[in-house]
């Protein structure tokens, strides 16, 4: 970031650098998206026996990353007003004055087109269509329609982040069988407890910005209960790949251990005062620990799938 004092007593003027544009693309979300798309791509090859040209596979993953970045930039363009209100997001490129709003929108739209074209060239039209749908789902449906209107924004909007493994699968086989949709469902049901753990800590910020996050509309206790509910639902869904034969022992053991950990946090958060007005530092730390563990949880599950199917460590459990 280039900063320079505009006058001895004024706020420094900021000029955007490449780093600001990368920030616009929400790189942390992009990492998770890329990882889950890669997982879908690897597992599809292992399950179907169809192999994809490695260069085409790399371009497909790059396209998914760009698509994610494009949706992130569109989200930041639309949410610039509320980002400026919340302390956590006030340092983002648009509210901090580094990047003009119009540039963020242009970047998002151009990258959307480029990513869809790239994935179409590298794989097939179905993968390109689903990437288009996922960009529109996050950039328009979640950001512009759901986020400011309903407390279920995270639940419905969670589908946007769940598409990448299906896109990866489609890119390889041109089809999206049950196994691909199981991966979708894992991310879909993982998103609410993951995000609400963070919103239990940041609920005052959301309230200030007028965002109807669940802790703001329904209270902290109801949020903690729903987090536990979604975590319990997640247990059989996470173990479903073992039943269908998509995953084997490695994933099964990792899945059971991670589920125990996630349930432990969900139960502990449920019994705490996290998100309440009189919550202290230990409660905030507990909620943040669950948020951090949830990221490890998803990475762990998809890493186990990649290890099994990508490195020849698949040993079927033989449930069916």
């Amino acid at each position: 970031m280039n900063t320079i004092p505009s006058a001895p007593t004024e706020t420094p003027i900021r000029f955007a650098t490449a780093r600001d544009y990368i920030e616009l693309m929400k790189p942390r979300i992009m990492m998770l998206v890329v990882f889950t798309a890669l997982s879908g791509l690897v597992v599809a090859q292992g399950v179907s026996g169809v192999t994809m040209n490695p260069v085409m596979a790399a371009i497909t993953i790059l396209a998914v990353a760009l698509g994610s970045g494009a949706a992130g930039a569109i989200n930041m363009w639309y949410d610039a007003d509320i980002d400026a209100i919340m302390t956590r997001t006030s340092v983002r490129p648009i509210p901090s004055g580094a990047v003009p709003k119009e540039e963020a929108l242009a970047l998002g739209l151009i990258m959307s087109a480029a990513s869809v074209l790239m994935i179409w060239l590298a794989s097939n039209v179905l993968a390109a269509v689903l990437l288009t749908v996922s960009i529109a789902y996050y950039g328009w449906f979640y950001t512009m329609l759901l986020k400011r209107r309903t407390s279920q924004n995270i639940v419905v909007g969670g589908a946007a982040g769940a598409f990448p493994p299906v896109i990866g699968w489609l890119a390889v086989t041109g089809t999206a069988p049950l196994d691909a949709w199981i991966l979708f469902t894992i991310i879909f049901f993982w998103t609410p407890p993951h995000f609400w753990a963070l919103s239990l800590v940041a609920h005052k910020e959301y309230e200030k910005a007028g965002i109807p996050m669940l802790p703001v509309t329904n209270g902290a206790k109801n949020t903690r209960l729903q987090m536990l509910f979604y975590t319990i639902i997640l247990v059989p869904i996470v173990l479903a790949p073992v039943v269908t034969g998509m995953a084997g022992w490695v994933y099964g053991v990792v899945g059971v251990l991670l589920n125990i950990g996630f349930l432990y946090f969900a139960v502990k958060v449920m019994g705490s005062k996290a998100g309440e007005a009189d919550a202290g530092d230990p409660e905030r730390k507990l909620a943040m620990s669950m948020f951090a563990f949830s990221i490890l949880y998803l990475f762990g599950l998809f890493a186990a799938l990649i290890v099994e199917r990508g490195f020849g460590l698949y040993f079927p459990v033989g449930v069916i």
């Binding site: 371009i59 790239m118 060239l121």
Partner: peptide
Amino acid sequence: GFVVIVGATTAIR
């Protein structure tokens, strides 16, 4: 980079 990617995919296809 974009031109290289389009070129590479076309060549492979």
